[in-house]
Design a protein around this nucleic acid. Structure first.
Lengths: 162, 162
DNA sequence: TAGAATACGGATAATAAATATCCTTATTGC
DNA sequence: GCAATAAGGATATTTATTATCCGTATTCTA
């Protein structure tokens, strides 16, 4: 079990969009170029973000994407779920129902104990992702990335932002 | 991203093996029949458990599997990792290295900030799975499953255990 | 107003992973 | 010796992921 690579792409794209000045848009082309990713396929990830209302888009030249909400109000979980979907990572097929000793017409009361544990763990994962916002990510990046690289990247993006 | 169905199968099989009396074995055939699963493919999951040293096996008629450790010393994480592997659920391809503004020969210091968050969440998931033992699962099941079903299942298993 | 650049969605292909089956071998109990 | 078993290799089958291509509507710019 491994997350789609689109999750990684979407998170990095959001990090870039988070630094975009108010009212400006950045195109798929620019995002793909900046990250060295296939433009057409990255486009699908961005469309997922758009459908999840995490980003807004405009058409035409100078079109592209921008965040739809303040960076403090978008979490890692939002992005991950936009790309991966909201379904739990453990699917219970209720195999206990195949127990040959199960009486006719017997129906289990609640969810399986095995599934509950797996779902609790899934929720712990999601809680952790929910606890980190894009704002927090940007703050970390700003501290870690060398100033010159940070600024040159910012310039690179601005030059291409519509 | 969804866990293999073998994870579910392995957990339920371990729950059964946890109730097996000292020194007895239960075959793949019996476990497959009890859960309504394809014997050949379930066998692969049990082999994974065996390779991870969570269960022991013997050959021949009356052969099969039994737990290799006390139920209190086998966790959900042990079983999940035996089947799914120990790799993290987020793979960082280090796409920041594709940044066109990155100076020649520049080398990132530590892991990417995005990956760290994803890995923290992964660890939260694992911690939760690590916190639940087979002993705890059996205790829950014993409380939840109707006594008659519990006992008849136990009898069913014992009749087939070598 | 024409043309170019864009997001969007549908269709399709290529690759990888999960699911499943079959067969052979070595071991064990009867 | 025979039957039942775990183990592991080989091979399909099915599904998911990754990727590309194309047509359409929209928007900016010249």
């Amino acid at each position: 079990m491994i997350l789609k690579s689109q999750v990684e792409w979407a998170l990095h794209c959001c990090a870039i969009l988070a630094g975009l000045p108010e009212g400006r848009y950045l195109s798929t082309k620019a995002l793909a170029e900046f990250h060295g990713l296939p433009k057409e396929y990255l486009s699908k990830a961005l469309q997922s973000l758009s459908q999840a209302k995490l980003v807004e888009s405009t058409l035409g030249p100078s079109g592209g994407y921008r965040l739809a909400r303040p960076t403090a109000e978008i979490t890692f979980l939002d992005v991950v779920e936009a790309v991966e979907g909201k379904e739990r990572t453990f699917a219970c097929s209720n195999i206990r129902a195949n127990n040959p000793c199960r009486p006719e017409g017997y129906c289990e009361a609640g969810p399986c104990a095995v599934a509950r544990v797996m779902w609790d763990a899934d929720e712990a994962w999601r809680a952790k992702l929910r606890s980190v916002s894009l704002a927090a990510l940007v703050q970390t990046l700003e501290q870690e990335i060398p100033t010159t690289l940070w600024q040159s990247s910012f310039q690179w993006v601005l030059k291409r932002a519509g």
